[in-house]
Measured scan of single mutants.
Amino acid sequence: GAPPLPPYSAGGREVTMKKGDILTLLNSTNKDWWKVEVNDRQGFVPAAYVKKLDSGTGKELVLALYDYQEK
């Protein structure tokens, strides 16, 4: 199953993602919540729920390892 959710501390809205989604990583300075862009929406997802990909394009991409439903 998915890892436990860290307390929400990102101070911005969250976004929903599905397992297998490829998201653009915008900011990973917060260790628990990373800012991503998905379907032209920006928001935060739990860092433990995604994995960085080596895209080779200069853009940082992450793979959704679990479904996440915004609150």
Rank of each mutant, 00 (worst) to 15 (best):
Q69K: 09
L5G: 05
Y8F: 12
G58K: 11
D54E: 13
L61A: 08
Y66I: 04
R13D: 13
Y68C: 01
L61F: 12
M17T: 04
I22K: 04
P6R: 01
D67F: 03
R13Y: 11
L5S: 07
L25N: 01
Y8V: 09
V38K: 14
A2L: 13
D40T: 11
E60V: 15
W34K: 00
F44S: 03
N30K: 05
T24Y: 07
K59G: 12
L61P: 02
D54W: 12
V36H: 00
D67V: 02
V62H: 02
K52C: 06
F44W: 15
N39C: 09
G1T: 11
T24S: 14
S55A: 13
G1F: 09
A64S: 05
P46C: 02
V62K: 00
R13L: 15
T16H: 09
I22V: 09
L61M: 12
P46I: 02
K71W: 10
K35I: 14
K52N: 04
V38Q: 11
S9P: 14
Y68V: 02
N30C: 07
V50N: 00
A48W: 03
Y49C: 03
S28R: 07
P46M: 01
L26R: 03
Y66K: 05
L63N: 02
S28L: 04
N27L: 08
T16R: 09
D67T: 05
G11H: 11
D21C: 04
T29I: 10
G12F: 10
L26S: 02
G58S: 12
Q69I: 12
Y49M: 05
S28H: 08
V38W: 09
Y8Q: 14
V50A: 03
T29N: 14
L5I: 13
A48F: 04
K31L: 12
Q69W: 11
V62D: 00
L23S: 02
G43M: 06
K35A: 08
Y49W: 08
E14T: 15
S28I: 06
A10W: 06
T16D: 10
M17P: 00
A48Y: 05
K18W: 09
D40Y: 10
T24N: 08
N30V: 04
Y49H: 03
S55H: 14
T29Q: 12
W34M: 04
P4G: 09
T16M: 07
L53R: 02
V50F: 05
E70M: 08
V62Q: 00
V36L: 03
D32C: 07
V50G: 01
R13F: 14
L65G: 01
D67I: 01
K71A: 10
P3E: 05
K71R: 14
L63M: 14
F44H: 04
Y68S: 03
G1C: 10
E37T: 13
K51T: 14
L26I: 13
Y68R: 02
V50K: 00
K71N: 14
Y68G: 00
K71M: 11
K19P: 03
R41K: 13
D54A: 09
G11V: 11
L23T: 00
N30G: 11
K19W: 03
K35S: 07
Y8R: 03
K19T: 08
G12H: 11
W34G: 00
G12Y: 10
D67Q: 03
L25W: 01
A2D: 08
K19C: 05
E37I: 09
L23N: 01
R41H: 10
F44C: 07
Q69T: 15
T29Y: 08
F44E: 02
G58F: 09
L23H: 03
W33E: 01
S55D: 12
M17E: 01
D21G: 03
R41D: 10
D32E: 12
K18S: 09
R13M: 14
E60I: 15
Q69E: 09
L63V: 15
G11M: 13
